[in-house]
């Protein structure tokens, strides 16, 4: 299990680094899809099969298609220079800040006494999640549905532009 986790983590990290460092924004989007697929595999290996399926469908399916459609709608020039970055000094500052954040998080992970936890229990199936969603988390579930409706209408109105003739 640990070996699988490391392989999937490698896939995810390669995807993330490629997304951040690529000069072509379409390549960036496809590296992001690779990273999402690696994360979905990690969810499967953590015995969260429903979340893995949701990750595959929502992120590496819908979000990726949305991003690529948006890229195609706004970009009409050469794709090879389509992903501009800041100047070199700002990139150094950004890398330093991100590295500092990672070191701080790593220190807090190493120094916090976390109990071992046990992973030998059976996986959380979709039926368990459905029970939780409709009993204990019923109100947030309804609110999320409302949020998705509002976001859909808002995105439609914004992208279409209601008042232009």
């Amino acid at each position: 299990m640990q070996l699988l986790f490391y392989v999937f983590a490698l896939v995810t990290i390669v995807g993330a680094l490629g997304m951040v460092l690529s000069h072509n924004i379409v390549h960036s989007a496809f590296y992001l899809v690779l990273s999402f697929i690696g994360l979905a595999l990690i969810y499967f290996s953590l015995s969260a099969p429903f979340l893995g399926a949701v990750q595959l469908m929502v992120y590496s399916g819908a979000v990726a298609i949305l991003v690529i459609m948006a890229i195609m709608m706004v970009r009409r020039t050469d794709m090879t220079v389509s992903n501009p970055t800041q100047s070199l000094i700002k990139r150094f500052v950004g890398a330093g800040t991100a590295a500092l954040f990672f070191v701080l998080m790593g220190l807090s992970i190493v120094l916090t006494p976390l109990g071992g936890g046990d992973a030998a229990l059976p996986a959380t199936e979709a039926a368990d999640l459905a029970g939780l969603l409709l009993s204990r988390f019923a109100l947030p579930f309804e609110l999320i549905a409302l949020l998705l409706l509002a976001a859909m209408l808002g995105a439609l109105l914004l992208a279409r532009g209601g008042d232009e003739s």
Partner: peptide, 19 residues
Amino acid sequence: ALLFSIGLYGLFTRRGIIA
């Protein structure tokens, strides 16, 4: 934490809104 840091680096260094 590593994924979050990579995302943070990209957030600081990219100029395009989609990126």
